[in-house]
Computed example of a mutant assay.
Amino acid sequence: MKETVRVILADDHSSVRHGLRSLLSAAPHVRVVGEAADTQALAELLDHYHCDVIISDVAMPGIGGESNAVSLLRRVLRESPHPQVVVLTMIHHTHTLLGLLHIGVGAIVDKRDAPDSLLGAIEAVVAGTLWLSGHARRALEAADPSSQPRLGVLSPREWEIFQMYAHGMTIDRIARTLDRSSKTISTQKRSAMRKLGLTSEVELADYARQTGLI
């Protein structure tokens, strides 16, 4: 990279941001122009600072009741022109990774691969090339070739119900808590699972663990 690449970092863990900043400081052509601890702060940074690349986790506090950054990243990637997006994550759920690629994410870097892969991912997306770190690539290679991206944006209520269910609340208890019918809660829970590409309770529990919900 010959020209300076301006980067915004977004992760809700300060230790992760510090580590990323230290890693990127070794690259003379990369300059961190902003840091965000949640999706709201990331949106505000994007309103005030021009950047070439966003490096963002997706499992962090969001806007309007959401608890992930996917809907914001989707909006950013629909704009023209737009910064390139590198997702830095511990998620290895196949449908979620496929969905991120489907909305236009240019690189997925598993946090375990970051020390060896992040600079390569930045160079790749700036050059317009897709990049997958080792763990992310192996997760996708293990997928059924016929799998289709199914990532959807959950409504605030769907996400609320999904979180409550992931924390062990029954459908009936959620219904009583939210003053809704059990049928309505069950429908919204199924909708949330479908949007996340989850087809079983086992996958739901695995997804909840990967995203830090439990």
Rank of each mutant, 00 (worst) to 15 (best):
I63L: 06
E141P: 12
L101T: 06
L9I: 04
D38P: 04
H50A: 12
G106W: 02
I54L: 13
S67E: 09
S117D: 13
L119P: 05
S56I: 03
L9R: 02
E201K: 05
H50S: 14
I54G: 00
S25C: 06
R137N: 15
A142P: 06
T94L: 08
S191N: 13
P28K: 05
D110F: 11
I161L: 07
E66D: 10
A59L: 03
P145S: 05
R6I: 09
M169P: 02
I103Q: 06
S56W: 00
R173H: 15
T170E: 12
Q84Y: 00
T177M: 06
G106K: 01
G134C: 12
A26F: 07
I174A: 05
D144Y: 10
V53M: 01
G168P: 09
G64L: 06
D38V: 05
A205R: 12
Y165D: 03
I214K: 07
R74D: 10
T177N: 06
L198P: 02
Q84E: 12
H95T: 01
L9K: 04
L46F: 02
V32I: 10
A41T: 01
V202T: 08
P28N: 08
A107N: 06
S191G: 05
L73G: 00
A59G: 03
Q188S: 07
W159Q: 13
R31P: 01
D172M: 11
R78A: 12
Q148G: 12
R31I: 00
L140C: 14
A107S: 07
R173Y: 09
L140I: 15
V30P: 03
L198F: 09
S25H: 08
T4Y: 08
R176N: 11
K111T: 11
R176M: 12
D113K: 01
L101K: 11
V86I: 06
L23R: 11
Q148I: 13
S146V: 14
D179C: 10
L213T: 12
S155H: 03
A59S: 10
T170Q: 12
S186E: 13
A175N: 07
H48R: 14
T170F: 05
V58I: 15
D57Q: 01
S191R: 11
L118V: 11
D116K: 14
Q40G: 10
Q163S: 13
R194E: 10
D206H: 07
S155G: 09
E203Y: 05
D116A: 14
D47K: 13
I214T: 13
A41M: 04
S71T: 04
I171W: 06
A37R: 13
L196R: 02
A139V: 08
D38I: 03
S117Q: 07
G106S: 09
A41N: 01
H50L: 10
E160R: 14
H135M: 15
K195G: 00
P61M: 09
L140W: 14
G62F: 00
L204A: 03
S186F: 08
V126L: 04
V7G: 00
L204K: 02
D179M: 12
P83N: 05
